[in-house]
Nucleic acid binder design. Structure first.
Length: 481
RNA sequence: GGUCUCAUCGUCUAAUGGUUAGGACACCAGGUUUUCAUCCUGGCAAUCCGGGUUCAAUUCCCGGUGAGAUCACCA
């Protein structure tokens, strides 16, 4: 069996979004599940006008962040370097010359306006426009100042696509397309075929937008006397709303943005893979290693999938909970509230352990933990708006807070001891936990939600708990609250 | 408009010529000594429509309809 070589071949014209990640991921998985498989990154920078500064770096950064590693690429080289099409112009010229010599390419003598006129004509006649209907009889010798066109050989095609199955088209879709532009750069249509051949690519995985040009590529493979690689067409990912392909305009987020928001690479990989692929079981959570082991093109969905942010959020929570505390600790390094800067490693880990079950994205960490690091601002409306607490008289509140302060003063601040102290408090006050614990919870955190009360108190420590209870008592004593 | 493709709960999906059409997200209800979350239990919810083949069709075939892609000196 020949070595599998797949590639991801983006054009550096913007940031990397989830659609691109999925194409790259599938190609990567396919290469990785074979012992000697290779995954290649190739930059298709043949459109100088659309090129966006920094997007190649962004692309590479995104792949790295997600753990989609490549074996050959523009920044790391490889046996078939260079991996940037703009540095391969001579190669395309050579291949173009072969076509010219074989009578399969010719100089396009028309101006843009002239071609547009043909197009309008066809449209007026309600006919599909085909350039080859206007093929010049005696084209000039190509000198690089005009586009070079492929002289197609229209015919019927049937081919197999690993995802889509058997596909067929008629000769009407075959046309003379441009191989080399007037700026001397090849078109995608030409360059990718040459490069895939030169780089010995065995599988082409790409988005649905290329499926309609596939027969033209087949025609070109024939003209170049090349065996074509195996094709796999992956359906589009649709935007959350509407029925459009997910693109920049639909608010498709840059994948690095998801990372910055505190989505784990594991989540992104898992989620993107499972949009359009599953292994036929009820498993939802897949690690990269599992994906490598289980992925197969014939289980890729044929229809487009919608990007569901809520499911992504759920999945991120799942992955966060799977992490060991130490691992999670490393990953939240940049997400702590500012006030946590001076806190000890040990203290931060204790806090983190408590909020691990509550985090859905790492960026929520400050929201969930700030009162562990700085004094919260008391907000008495949290008590007065509470269904149960609002029924208490001020004297009752004072008495409960006072009892709590006293009881906790002589209590070791570890979760077990605090819990038994709290339990005793329930008995001595004769209150239900819903009332007493809510009150204490608010007095020590002033947060809409917090971890288990005994743990919270234990981690905060006696000094902070006493001070906060004292402050709450002062406020309760002050009628203007 | 031409060409190609696709079609199962709101969403991601599983399955099969015979099933109570399964799971997950979301949503709703209940439970776990406070809150939020986790976790657990339960609930709601789908085979686009019409023909045909068949004892039997969501599954195979045909036709509609709907959706997507493409028709560039973009990839």
């Amino acid at each position: 069996m020949t070595t599998i070589r797949t590639r991801y071949a983006p054009s550096p014209t913007g940031y990397m979004h989830v659609g691109g990640v999925r194409t790259a991921l599938f190609a990567f998985l396919l290469a990785r599940q074979n012992n000697n498989g290779r995954f290649i990154l190739r930059l298709e920078d043949t459109d100088q006008k659309r090129e966006v500064e920094g997007s190649a770096e962004h692309l590479i950064k995104s792949l790295n962040a997600l753990g989609i590693s490549y074996d050959e690429g523009p920044d790391i080289g490889g046996d078939f370097a260079p991996y940037k099409q703009s540095e391969r112009l001579d190669i395309y010229k050579n291949w173009a010359q072969k076509l010219i010599d074989a009578g399969r390419a010719y100089a396009d003598p028309y101006t843009g306006d002239e071609i547009q006129a043909f197009r309008d004509q066809a449209r007026a006649a309600k006919q599909p426009f085909l350039y080859r209907n206007h093929r010049p009889e005696n084209p000039p010798v190509w000198n690089g100042t005009t586009p070079l066109r492929f002289k197609s050989d229209p015919k019927t095609y049937a081919w197999y696509d690993e995802v889509m199955g058997r596909l067929t088209t008629g000769p009407e879709v075959i046309d003379d397309f441009i191989l080399i532009k007037t700026d001397g750069f090849p078109t995608y249509n030409f360059a990718h075929i040459v490069d895939d051949a030169e780089m010995k690519i065995t599988h082409i995985i790409r988005g649905q937008e290329f499926i309609s040009s596939q027969p033209n590529y087949l025609n070109l493979y024939e003209a170049l006397n090349l065996d074509h690689p195996i094709f796999a067409t992956v359906p589009h990912i649709m935007a959350d709303a509407g029925n459009k392909k997910l693109g920049k305009r639909d608010g498709a987020k840059d994948v690095l943005e998801y990372i910055k928001d505190g989505y784990l690479p594991e989540t992104l990989i898992n989620f993107i893979a499972s949009m359009g692929w599953n292994d036929g079981t009820e498993q939802e959570i897949f690690s990269m290693d599992e994906l490598i082991a289980k992925f197969s093109l014939d289980r890729v969905q044929r229809s487009g999938a919608r990007f569901d942010e809520k499911r992504l959020l759920w999945m991120n929570g799942q992955w966060i909970r799977k992490l060991s505390l130490d691992d999670l600790y490393e990953r939240v390094a940049n997400f702590w509230p500012e006030a946590a800067e001076s806190a000890s490693l040990d203290y931060k880990k204790q806090v983190l352990a408590m909020v691990q079950d509550r985090l859905k994205v790492l960026s929520e960490l400050p929201l969930l933990s700030s009162y562990f690091f700085e004094e919260p601002t008391p907000d008495w409306t949290m008590i007065s708006n509470n269904k149960q607490l609002s029924k208490l008289s001020n004297d009752e509140i004072l008495s409960f807070l006072d009892s709590a302060q006293n009881a906790l003063l002589n209590c070791d601040h570890n979760p077990e001891a605090v819990q038994s102290t709290l339990n005793e408090l329930l008995e001595t006050t004769g209150q239900k936990p819903g009332i007493l614990f809510s009150l204490i919870r608010l007095a020590v955190s002033w947060a809409p939600f917090s971890p288990a009360l005994n743990e919270t108190i234990a981690v905060l420590g006696k000094d902070k708990v006493q001070a906060r209870l004292k402050l709450a008592i002062e406020i309760a004593n002050n009628p203007t609250k």
